[in-house]
Amino acid sequence: MLMSSAPDELERSLAACANGDRNALRHIYDVEAGRLIAIAQRIVRRRELAEEVVQEAFIRIWTHAHQYESTRGSARGWIYAIVRNRALNMLRDGKREHAIEDIETLQEKDSSDDVMTAWYRLDRNSRLYACLDALDDQRKRSILMAYVGGYSHGEIAGRLRLPLGTTKSWIRRSLTALRECMA
């Protein structure tokens, strides 16, 4: 997958943000906002909620840029994690519940498409692809539903028609297998 911005460029942008350079934040927006909105939207479903997530995330990127440490992972990973956390918090606050009531059928189809699209777009030569592919189909899907769609244990259990306890231990074991496979 071709990246439109080298990771060290994002690192420099974060450092410039910490020094009060708004152009650096604008640069991050130009390079990443499209993907960040899409990532948030996979979790919160509605475009306006996704934009709200990204707006809050950019404020946090700006105010916390000085806390980024390059020894703790990539600048891109740090930025994406902020967006993911805002989106997941919005879910926990219950905003998506309203969306589900509004447009249940449509959204159900869309979100399961999103989850599988993320799988199909993954680089076939990547470690993550190989290791997810080694899991059986239901387990792979449950990991993708959680990470890509922001589904809870209960939601995954419901959709896969499995008892909650079984789902939890499945996911836990799948994650262990993934860690070992990717180590």
């Binding site: 906002a33 996979r42 994690a81 993550l128």
Partner: peptide, 28 residues
């Protein structure tokens, strides 16, 4: 985070516009 990041970096980007940036900038 780094292990799962490829699931995010490969997403099809949404369209963006200037109004979202303006909202961000006003709130900085």
């Amino acid at each position: 985070r780094e292990r799962f990041l490829p699931l995010d970096t490969t997403v099809e980007p949404a369209t963006t516009d200037e109004t979202l940036w303006q909202r961000i900038e006003r709130a900085l």
